[in-house]
Amino acid sequence: MAFQDYSLIQAPMAGGLSTADVVAGASRAGALGSVGAGYLSGDAIMAAAEGVRAAGGDAFAINLFIPAERDATDAEWRAALKALSPCYRQSGVPVPDDFPPLPDFREQFEAMLEARPAVFSWTFGRLPKSMMAACRARGIALVGTATHRDEALALAGDGVDGIVLQGEEAGGHRGGADPQGEGQPLDALLSACRDIATPLIAAGGLMDGADVARVMAAGAATGQLGTAFLRCPEAGTAEGWRQALADAGPDATA
Rank of each mutant, 00 (worst) to 15 (best):
A235W: 00
R106S: 11
S191M: 05
A75R: 13
G162H: 02
D161H: 04
L155N: 01
S130E: 11
Q108A: 04
T198L: 02
A111Q: 04
A79E: 14
I9K: 13
G162S: 06
G223H: 15
T227L: 05
E114D: 06
Q184L: 15
I201G: 12
Q90T: 06
D251Q: 15
A49Q: 06
D251T: 14
S85M: 00
Q108I: 00
D187V: 01
S7Y: 08
A83W: 05
A48Y: 09
P199W: 13
S18A: 15
W77A: 05
L64A: 06
I140G: 00
E110F: 03
A156E: 06
L81A: 05
I140F: 09
G236I: 01
A115V: 03
S41A: 12
F109Y: 11
A14I: 02
G219T: 07
G204K: 13
A24G: 11
D21Y: 01
Y39R: 01
I196K: 03
T237M: 10
Q4H: 09
E168H: 00
G181Q: 12
A248S: 12
I62G: 11
S34N: 14
R136C: 08
A20L: 05
M216C: 15
A228Q: 08
D208W: 01
V35C: 14
D195V: 03
Q180P: 04
L81P: 02
E107F: 05
G15I: 08
R138F: 00
P117F: 01
G176W: 04
A54R: 15
F60R: 09
A252T: 12
A31R: 14
D104I: 04
V52Y: 02
Q108Y: 01
S91V: 00
R126W: 04
C135A: 09
M216E: 15
E50I: 00
F109K: 07
A26V: 09
V95L: 07
A68V: 00
L84I: 02
G16I: 13
L190P: 13
L206D: 06
M207C: 11
G144V: 08
M132R: 09
Q243E: 14
E182T: 11
G30A: 13
V22K: 08
V23M: 11
A170G: 08
A202S: 02
P185M: 10
I45Q: 05
D150K: 07
A235P: 03
L225S: 07
R138N: 03
A156K: 03
A203T: 04
A235R: 03
D104T: 04
V35N: 10
A44Q: 13
M46P: 05
I66A: 07
L127A: 07
L230K: 10
S27L: 07
G171L: 06
D98I: 05
A238S: 10
G226S: 12
F229D: 08
A54N: 14
G219A: 11
D71N: 09
D58M: 12
G33H: 13
V215P: 09
A83R: 12
R174C: 07
M131N: 02
